Amino acid sequence: MPDRIGQPGTAEPIGLYVHWPFCLSKCPYCDFNSHVRDRVDHAAWCAALLSELDHAAARMQGETGPRRLASIFFGGGTPSLMDPGTVGAVIERARRHWPAEPDIEITLEANPTSAETGNFAAFAEAGVNRVSLGVQSLRPGALTFLGRQHDAGQALAAVEMAARTFPRHSFDLIYARPEQDLEDWRAELTEALDHANGHLSVYQLTIEPGTAFHTEHRLGRFKTPDEEKAAAFFDVTQEVLEAHGMPGYEVSNHAVPGQESRHNLIYWRYRDYVGIGPGAHGRVTIGGTKRAQRRFRLPEKWLSQVQENGHGTEEDSPLDAMDRAAECLMMGLRLTEGVPLARLEEEGGQEALPDPARIARLVEEGYVTFDGGVIACTTEGRLRLNSVIDFLLS
């Protein structure tokens, strides 16, 4: 998997994340910053996003070497509910601030309902060249359980429309659902591959605090697979997708080589990205120091702050060397390619490198590999990723 976003010490390209926080309904498993509103003033939101984008670009002026724009990602929430004119305006303004890479990737997340897929052509006209669809399942009972507003037929129709409209598309699936059968998951995944176009995101169902599922799970209204069965689902997922030429390049993401999400690789390789919109995070190098940026989370609070101040920034603070190295390790170990110790040293110096004895122990136990100065998780290690990271950082 080539590193398309530069080598340390160069004026690396950056990514831009744009958060649209609104959904038609709140899925019971979702802990993202998403909200249901009866009405959205699209003109006001377009103006606010452009204002915050201008502010973010101005913060980066004067840096050594031009920063090129490698990717734009419209996430949410449900960005396919945006006015296509707003999407186009943000893309145009971003290109004005930063020269775009010739093969810039511009992704928009979408739900497979007819109201949203009806805007696909307009989004493509606005400049979107990749769409990521929240299919989640091809089984009617699972879609009902997950609170989705589409059926399997609509999902596949949306995937086919995406294939006709955009050069690249991906879609999401959720596994390890209550009472799900391993062989049925194998069949569902195989069916999904008949419609895939180089990339799939496949997530294990997790019960997150603050979600409707968290309450229902605590009340015993459903059970999720135990750790052993969840691992079996993970193994089946790897087996089926690798056999179809789509190996996992990240814990939950699979792609034909060359079709990886370039935007997400910026996160996982710990490169710079700007985040605008409610709750959006960013990591941007200014004056030689990487800074953690975060916008106000509540949509109405963010909007009022932008209208008053030109931006909705709640945090903009420098990251110290050890924090940078820890973040670099946490993100890099998600990738199958792993993380070079040279990257950790670049961020945090020699003192930030993991204890060699701890690396050796993880190698001995089969959780990581260490070759050519690169530490990477094995399949067993990815199943215990948080524990591996905690062990290396402690």
Rank of each mutant, 00 (worst) to 15 (best):
364 E>V: 01
157 A>G: 07
285 T>I: 03
82 M>Q: 04
212 A>I: 02
99 P>Q: 14
77 G>R: 06
205 L>G: 13
59 R>H: 06
190 T>I: 06
198 G>F: 07
320 D>Y: 09
194 D>P: 00
221 R>M: 07
196 A>D: 06
139 R>Q: 13
222 F>S: 02
136 Q>C: 09
49 L>G: 05
199 H>G: 02
312 G>P: 05
194 D>M: 02
154 Q>A: 14
144 T>W: 01
302 W>M: 08
59 R>D: 05
20 W>N: 00
206 T>N: 09
139 R>M: 07
312 G>D: 05
385 L>E: 12
261 S>F: 11
272 D>P: 05
390 D>M: 10
236 V>L: 14
315 E>F: 11
341 L>M: 11
294 R>P: 00
348 G>R: 02
99 P>E: 13
225 P>S: 10
18 V>K: 06
11 A>G: 07
14 I>T: 09
160 E>R: 14
70 A>Q: 12
61 Q>S: 13
393 L>W: 11
256 V>I: 10
357 A>F: 08
315 E>M: 12
228 E>W: 01
62 G>Y: 08
255 A>L: 02
274 V>M: 13
169 H>K: 05
181 D>H: 08
128 V>C: 06
308 E>G: 03
188 E>T: 06
246 M>D: 00
4 R>K: 04
363 V>F: 01
354 P>W: 06
134 G>S: 11
371 D>F: 00
349 G>S: 04
361 R>E: 15
132 S>Q: 12
155 A>K: 11
383 L>Y: 07
252 S>L: 06
179 E>W: 07
166 F>S: 04
320 D>S: 09
76 G>H: 05
26 K>L: 13
2 P>L: 13
249 Y>H: 03
75 G>D: 03
31 D>S: 14
28 P>Q: 11
143 L>E: 06
219 L>E: 15
233 F>C: 13
366 G>H: 09
259 Q>M: 08
103 D>R: 14
46 C>N: 13
131 V>H: 07
132 S>H: 10
179 E>H: 13
54 D>E: 15
31 D>Y: 10
222 F>I: 03
229 K>Y: 02
135 V>D: 06
134 G>W: 10
9 G>D: 08
144 T>Q: 13
20 W>H: 01
204 Q>H: 13
128 V>A: 06
383 L>M: 15
25 S>N: 09
